[in-house]
Design a protein around this nucleic acid. Structure first.
Lengths: 340, 340
DNA sequence: CCCCGTACTGTTATCGCTAACACTGATCAT
DNA sequence: ATGATCAGTGTTAGCGATAACAGTACGGGG
């Protein structure tokens, strides 16, 4: 047991508390508290004395005590599905940065599955640690259900969920993104555009299908293939799609699947983009270096995250109805698409 | 202001507290507390009555109050550089899962830069929120410095840092990984192996260089090129390396850079693996679908994260000296390498 | 010269929980 | 029968901070 002191100014048997600082500065604990929370209410010279004492003792306010009496914790929670995926990871990162700027800390609860139940559990877990608000990143149909039966007293913001919810939300307009991607292929002269979609019970996946269909409205839409977002599923579905010689253009619902699909096409002797054009979705940092460099739809996750935080902040301070904000994606044309 | 009740069982003007539950169950608050924290000390029938009351009132313990009196928060912090990168993201994810299994919550503080100062700030920020321990993912030279001047009373575990520290740590044996990768290329008959490294002040980057050098010890080691982990830097450095016709094998310090490098080679008419063999590092999920499928070194981030948590747990309960654990990486041979 | 507002600072009472100890009856060896 | 032991429960006293209310001293208007 090494409880002996070492060198820093904060060295005593116990960490310093308000009372200690007060003693050293010759004031009451309340005054110290004021110096820390509302400095303008304390005479400058007293303030200086207190600050010096704080410094000398290396005093750090006890968060639990403050939180107990104020009812606020300065922590917000993020419930997210697999934070290993590019989208959630980027969003989380942006949220964290925005939060820090406002002196909030971020607590995460990642989900192994996205079910109504697991969402509820995640939120619950965070709530027990008395977070001041929660951001949910769970673009899944059943997750949206989970959001319905949330406690009404807890500020919650939804990212990328359905639009049928009565809570504030931010989302990328995937319908528009998919529409543009498909439109781009059509404009290049392709008769029709095939689609490799994400899981249909993912909100994103669903909207991308809709956007694709919409762009194809005056044509015949071939039945979409369904993947699971992984490069591997892209490869598998790509192998199936290869068998159809009429395929000349594919809109793939994310970049990793596009990578797998392109590989499958190449292995079967179909060249991209000479024989078939491919558009991805996400614009992961590597997309520009795929072979060929991938034409894709860029989502601005940083904006998404920042806006989510802003919305939550609004709700936490009281205002904030059920605003819903939308972030526009952007088509990035590279070399995986060409004129038919 | 809608403070009116709605329907759930937890509906009262204020959330239920211990006292309320106690009243309803006809016991003292202490007994309720015991039911929650040490059920075996309460007679089963009393326990049942209390549990029923808890249920009925929708009681949830107040975390701040508990934390105030016990001195423990049930939260641990993770300080990490850019959680958007595959490595940190995966490690974080594994930590989070391990933590949850032990009823810990995870607070994150991501760093925009890795300097001695920013590490200290990150840890500090977490400490103020009274986390019980901190895991630092910051495989950077100067970050390691930052770990030196940490408060000795806070349990800290280092992931992927230098070995010169007197704190518990987990790390992948990059020396070994790089050695194997290089050895593999040598075994295929290549005269020498070029290296595109990560930033040299990253611990990982440094060790990979060392491992590569070690494998080349009886040969002449060409000067390594230096990238910044991004596919883009791989592309840029690749373009430079192309100009040297003697290059037949390259060991690249991570997969995205390998992707960029391969692209550069292809654009200059050099085929992979026929003309030049490439080995990456990380085994990102997409690596198997690169063109050609990438031979690479797999790091088991899940294990890394789990072990980091375990070490922290040990330290938090008191034991835990300065153990240092090592995770072995694994060479995954695919199609980007071939016999010379 | 008194009253009262202004500017500071101090007191008291919690916030919701648990540690530590005190109390009750049984149960049991002596 | 007597006390020791023990399971089960209650009481008391904080943990460290802030909200709300009291002071206290000073200065200016009447």
């Amino acid at each position: 047991m090494t409880t002996t002191s070492g060198g820093g100014p904060a060295e005593r048997s116990k960490a310093a508390v308000l009372e200690d600082v007060a003693g050293l500065a010759g004031v009451s604990a309340m005054t110290v508290s004021r110096v820390l929370n509302a400095p303008e209410k304390v005479r400058p010279e007293t303030r200086a004395r207190v600050l010096a004492a704080v410094q000398e003792l290396g005093y750090r306010p006890n968060f639990a005590a403050r939180s107990l009496v104020t009812g606020r914790s300065g922590v917000l929670g993020v419930v997210s599905f697999d934070t290993t995926l590019y989208g959630p990871a980027s969003t989380l990162y942006a949220i964290e940065r925005a939060a820090r700027e406002h002196d909030y800390l971020v607590n995460i609860a990642s989900l192994a599955t996205m079910t109504r139940k697991s969402i509820a559990e995640g939120v619950d877990r965070l709530r027990q640690q008395s977070v001041d608000g929660v951001i949910v990143i769970a673009p899944h149909e059943s997750a949206v259900e989970g959001l319905r039966d949330l406690p009404p007293d807890l500020p919650v913001v939804d990212v990328g969920g359905g639009e049928r919810l009565a809570i504030p939300a931010v989302a990328v307009d995937h319908h528009s993104g998919a529409f543009r991607a498909t439109r781009h292929l059509l404009d290049l002269g392709h008769e029709t555009v095939h689609h490799l979609s994400g899981p249909v019970n993912w909100i994103d996946g669903y909207h991308r299908i809709q956007g694709w269909r919409h762009a194809l409205r005056d044509r015949e839409a071939p039945p979409p293939l369904v993947g699971d977002w992984s490069a591997n599923s892209g490869y598998e579905q790509g192998k199936r799609l290869c068998r159809d010689p009429s395929v000349t253009a594919v809109f793939v619902a994310n970049d990793p699947m596009a990578l797998g699909l392109i590989r499958a096409f190449r292995e079967s002797g179909r060249r991209v983009p000479e024989d078939v054009s491919v558009v991805g979705y996400d614009d992961v940092p590597e997309a520009a270096h795929f072979w060929p460099p991938l034409t894709t739809v860029r989502q601005n996750f940083a904006t998404l995250g920042r806006q989510a935080f802003q919305l939550l902040l609004d709700r936490m301070v009281g205002l904030g109805t059920t605003e819903r904000r939308t972030v526009e994606p952007e088509l990035v044309v590279r070399e995986s698409t060409s004129r038919r």
